[in-house]
Design a protein around this nucleic acid. Structure first.
Lengths: 215, 215
DNA sequence: GCGGGCATCAGCCGATCGGCTGATGCCCGT
DNA sequence: ACGGGCATCAGCCGATCGGCTGATGCCCGC
């Protein structure tokens, strides 16, 4: 079954051997697919993609030594023929949008059923976009809000709250510090999370440092 | 009562007018004290301290436009005669140790009873150190642990966890990402909090950026 | 004068976090 | 061989957080 002439050829990229084995086994035991190789990080992936010229690359994000997003960007830049199907563990992954912007054809969660995975790979091979429901809904909301989810300036009050958060101040303490209620602090936080495109205070602080809002 | 020749002269520094009024009223209605002036930030405080030459400066930390710690450092550097008594709202304040290092003579919480406050000011005027119990216990634990609570290098694993925290990853997600249990993630976090001298993930991320561990 | 951004507040809820206590195994340096 | 740093894990608990829904008042620009 590995020499099916019409088979869709695959490259598997994941830093976890267990996952690679699982995927390989799954696709090798199904008709219509052929696994050409495996890579354990983004750099390897780019090299192998050039050497093996697969139809579809199943790619994890967040790998030591060459992140997935960078690899996708590189593949896109060099005009690789392969379609990239991102296969990640959590939809909460903050790299969702960057990955798609970088040129990923699809974005699935690892807990997707086998059949859904097969269908997704076939769809990706044809260039059709496949998104898991959670990611899809996130995308529409991102589009619905035309603001660049990154360059939205924070209000003075929001920066003030953020600065205190960076010092390890709790919401209640921030409230007393600024003479407002805890509810208001939470509102400010919710707003600045949205503006920064993050989901908790730790990531907000990190993003703020990256963008020179703090520091 | 404001022209008592033996009165202890005071400078009140706090960004909240309410607090300044409260302190002024408290000390003006008590014998043995004379309030020379008020400042609402650190810069003002340094200037007024030079002009008025008070015995004791009651200083809040965390003020807009010139933080309290910087002001204390400046006063110490210029060899001001005044003793600085830090008067802050929470003992959770992360500036506790820096303030004392900078040269503060005492450190009290604002909810201290009047008499305790008076006694503290008298003690400060004589150069004796006064610490609120919470701060005192923190100090001993800081001394008990001879490591500089700031320069303790993180282990590779701790840095790994911290980097994920900065991306907004939850403990559970980090656990799966690194193939360890959530309990272990929490252990790493507790350790790196101690090493960085912070109390939550947001402050850890901020400190890591400040020290170029991240970014 | 109306929409919209901003700041303020309320209450509920489940999820997550952080503290505490305690334990095991590994490796390294003395 | 012993101590110590590191990594791993458990369970309990209260505190905190973040999401959700909804509301008010202010000010500004069109």
């Amino acid at each position: 079954m590995t020499d099916d002439a019409a088979a869709i050829t695959l490259l598997i990229v994941d830093d976890h051997p267990v996952v690679r084995d699982g995927l390989r086994g799954m696709f090798e035991s199904a008709p219509g697919f052929r696994v050409l190789g495996e890579a354990s990080n983004g750099v390897e992936a780019v090299a192998l993609a050039a050497a093996l010229d697969p139809d579809v690359i199943l790619m994890d994000l967040r790998m030591p030594g060459g992140g997935g997003v960078d690899a996708i960007r590189e593949l896109t830049r060099t005009g690789a023929r392969a379609k990239v199907l991102v296969l990640t563990t959590y939809d909460t992954d903050s790299d969702t949008l960057p990955a798609i912007e970088a040129g990923a054809t699809g974005y699935l969660l690892k807990d997707a059923p086998r059949d859904e995975l097969f269908a997704a790979v076939r769809a990706a091979a044809e260039g059709r976009t496949v998104l898991s429901p959670a990611v899809a809904s996130r995308l529409v909301s991102a589009v619905r809000t035309p603001r660049a989810p990154g360059n939205d300036p924070l209000s003075a009050r929001e920066r003030e709250v953020l600065a205190l958060v960076a010092k390890g101040t709790s919401n209640r303490e921030i409230a007393r510090e600024l003479f407002i209620s805890e509810a208001t602090v939470k509102t400010h936080l919710t707003h600045l999370y949205a503006k920064l495109g993050v989901k908790d205070r730790a990531a907000a602080v990190a993003t703020a440092y990256e963008r020179k809002i703090l520091g």
